[in-house]
Write a protein that binds this DNA or RNA. Structure first.
Lengths: 250, 250
DNA sequence: TGTATGCGTTATGTATACAATAACGGAGGG
DNA sequence: CCCTCCGTTATTGTATACATAACGCATACA
């Protein structure tokens, strides 16, 4: 007990979960590698009970995979797994947009999204976009998607979208980070922003089908760009999370 | 240790999870009710560690809700939550059908689905359908949906659909059970069967859009019928799981 | 030399003791 | 009579000891 330092500000379970997720995403733990509880106890500083809890939660998140005989290993993703995850998320967000449009959204509820939109416009005005601005973009974009999801007012759907976004490469920010390695990044972002604009418009005019269609197109664009980015793979080292991907289909 | 009986054939964690799920679904625990670990220890016969594990897993399943200050409570669902869950699942299955159609499926892979289809046809030929036949239908229908999902060959999507089906009322069998209370049940089942037939045909002919559309229509039909079933609510007592629903929007 | 079996090591699964914290109730003061 | 504060109690969070099953290695036998 003398040497173990305890941070009492957050629960040990959460602490362990964050630490382990960091290790996975940063590449300290390689895909396919078995993750031992004892080892996790040493690296996270928590005891076995919260560590085990964290492992179960990370499995649910999709970062770990349960080994039949017991224990967990870091999950490996193929290129197709990733593009499917993006499309999956787009489909879910499309449904959210449709729900929002069909169920009606007040002008006041739309306000935060429009602010997001304007802020992103402001950023994209820079040519070329700075690294700082890009980082702001990632945050704003994630916020836009989260707010849009909320507008569906459907707890089950929101829950499912949150889960689908847990995989870093499936989330819009993850996708955008991958894009940043592309020379055409800014152009892509401008198209994406156009999508955002159309969705808002469709929701405002209660055109459910159109709102859904554009969100799905948005995701399909992301998939195309991911493929592009994976082709000139050298750029991808920028993003530790993506660097972890095992392209099983090579 | 003397009085606690230990069943060594299955893990305590699984045992506790099954026992707790039973309690929730059977109505022993009411929605909104807090579920204490100690109490769960007594009713399941497992100790606190596996019980806690089971609670976390049931939360992920969507049957429990975490209380901010700690602990879990049985989740309550509104009528809209349920219809959204059904539509959500239909959307996901639509994507699966599209993937299957676009990616191509061999005749051999389609065989089990066609067998399912034929078996269901056989059942529906009875007028009126017997209780036993109905129970067989539930099984066959679940199998059909599961097999169809598999054809997408997309692990992330399959995973997500499995999760979306965890809620009993969102799964096809759960929906069908609700339908069974309706006088028009058999007619509805025949229409559903027609949907199944069209999906197979669309996949065979690699028509992704059509495959997707029919699965979504399938779900929308389910939602309509759920609404119908909820109107003559007395019938619903047949199904303990559905009886638990708190219609927040009453 | 190859295979099978048994033992030892290591990891996970389980139980329980202990600590901390949040909920509840009662008593005292305003 | 109500509000507030403090103490008690119950419940969760954490740590760790113990049981059990899996894995690997070595040795012996075919």
């Amino acid at each position: 007990m003398a040497e173990r330092e305890i941070d009492r500000s957050v629960s040990q379970t959460v602490k362990a979960q964050l630490a382990l997720r960091d290790q996975i995403l940063s590449g300290s733990l390689r895909p396919g590698e078995r993750i031992s509880e004892l080892q996790a106890v040493e690296t996270t500083g928590a005891s076995r009970t919260p560590v085990r809890m964290a492992l179960v939660r990370l499995e649910e998140e999709g970062l770990l995979e349960a080994i039949p005989s017991g224990g967990f290993m870091v999950k490996a993703f193929s290129e197709r797994d990733i593009s499917d995850s993006i499309e999956l998320r787009g489909t879910l967000e499309g449904l959210a947009a449709r729900f929002a449009a069909e169920r009606g959204v007040s002008a006041r509820e739309l306000e935060p999204l429009k602010e997001c939109l304007a802020a992103i416009d402001e950023l994209l005005r820079q040519v070329p976009i700075s690294v700082d601005a890009f980082s702001s973009y990632v945050t704003l974009n994630a916020r836009f998607h989260a707010q849009l999801t909320e507008l569906s007012r459907s707890p089950p759907l929101i829950r499912q979208i949150d889960r689908a976004s847990a995989l870093p490469f499936a989330s819009p920010s993850g996708f955008v980070m991958a894009q940043s390695a592309l020379p055409e990044a800014q152009q892509i972002l401008i198209i994406a922003q156009e999508h955002h604009r159309v969705v808002i418009d469709a929701i405002e005019n209660r055109e459910g089908a159109r709102a859904e269609a554009v969100m799905r197109e948005h995701a399909r664009l992301a998939v195309r760009n991911l493929r592009l980015a994976l082709r000139n793979r050298t750029h991808l080292d920028l993003l530790p999370a993506l660097a972890l991907i095992k392209t099983a289909t090579d």
